[in-house]
Design a protein around this nucleic acid. Sequence first.
RNA 1: GGCAUCAUGGCCGAGCGGCUAGGCAGCGGUCUGCAAAACCGUCUACAGCGGUUCGAAUCCGCUUGAUGCCUCCA
Length: 497
Amino acid sequence: MQLYLSQEIQLYNSISGKKEKFTPINEGYVGMYVCGPTVYSNVHLGNVRTFMSFDLVFRYLKHLGYKVRYVRNITDAGHLENDADEGEDRIAKKARLEQIEPMEVVQRYTVDFHTILDKFNFLPPSIEPTATGHIIEQIEIIKDILEKGYAYEINGSVYFDVIKYNEAHKYGTLSKRNVEDMIHNTRELDGQSDKKNPQDFALWKKAEPQHIMRWPSPWSDGFPGWHLECTAMSTKYLGEKFDIHGGGMDLKFPHHECEIAQAEACNGHSPVNYWMHANMLTLNGKKMAKSTGNNILPGELFTGNNSNLSKAYSANVVRFFILQAHYRSILDFSDDALLAAEKGYNRLMEALKTAKSLATSNTSSFDVENWKQSCYNAMNDDFNSPILIANLFEGVKLINLIKDGKESITQEDLDLLLSTMHNFLFDVLGLTSTSEGNQSTGNENALSGTVELLIKLRNEARADKNWALSDQIRDELLALGIQLKDGKDGTTFTVAS
RNA sequence: GGCAUCAUGGCCGAGCGGCUAGGCAGCGGUCUGCAAAACCGUCUACAGCGGUUCGAAUCCGCUUGAUGCCUCCA
């Protein structure tokens, strides 16, 4: 029996503003689309958090036995600097500044994106389509919208007519805005825009003569509007109606609003049942901005090479830290918070090692089955990873108390405890075991042997009560980043990472 | 200025009307030759002012502040 039959997910639907029971369109199958990055610069840490939130969703749905088709696009054309105006394509701009081809920009930052996500142990999406690979599909959608009368062509460009659309449908349901307010509050200066109204958005843009990113269309040689690619690709791979659409909060308006309008103009109905939006990341209480230096690149976390960081952090620690907050809350990134997360993470992993050598009893003094369900309950409640983690720490405490002889557990319950911890930590939260993750190299074996030797010598000195020598060994190793840990069963060591 | 979201203890962060969140730090223990590490135990909350209710961190109103979008930065 699949787990999803016994676990009911409640998820927060941005469009209704409420938690709703999750029921996929086709039982056992889930279609999920998440707006991917525009590959015009190094992936933003906030982007990492957004995609990590949906990695968590993807992993949990799979864990429950759903067959999930997860589509996450790469925007490699059409994303303008300024959506409301005659902006420049972000990728084209970067290419101009760097004096390289747009596709070189795309390639460079797509590779960066994948490299960083790999380090954080993201599962690859089922399909990762690009905007430039779906120009034909986008043109077909524009034709359809034109035929339905919700778009108009001017000077080789095609714009979506928001006012007209709003007469038959409602524009702004997701972001809870109404078109009248938007018209009254438009601050935009009246530029040389071809648009009938500032709220209209581009479906197709005629390319300037020097613009290299151009494709033929019935209207002009040009390129598609940013919002259109997501409609084209989600429809192609997931259908006119699919289960979950996700993205960062900042995409709610206008991007997702435009997607709804485009799809509804074509198909007469909303494309998505559940909208999910991941919240922002701040740094030291303020928003991240490259211009003020209040910014960390994901890669800098691994080197510690940033004035906001006191040291380097492993991808696991960062992942653990991010998942300790709920995806719908603003999360504040800081060195102190990362240090705290690192200690907590280490404690969790230590307990896992401890658990392997626990003595079992004939009876259990703890209801493991009940605890396990509370882990599921946490995730079922809108993917509440912080509560899940709190539950996992209950497991840590139990393990340590059993070790101290203050609680008891049967072999059967211990197996259940361990498999549950393992499933949630590694499969659902996507952490990797430190011991499994780091393969021992020859150097590490040599180091290990050397330290073991020093431990042996130190123990001989201690047996002779030669404290000066034993403390020298201990202290000088510590200065080198090797900490000796004297326990009841002998001395172990850890190497600072 | 408009729309939206939010404000929890030294720090991070759950909480969706009554019942312990959790992590880190601190404090007290266990262990130790002394330490460190590890483990156990434990204290400090609910932005302000009103209201609803037998009862509010949790619902409503106002005030203050923050964040996102509208206006380059996810």
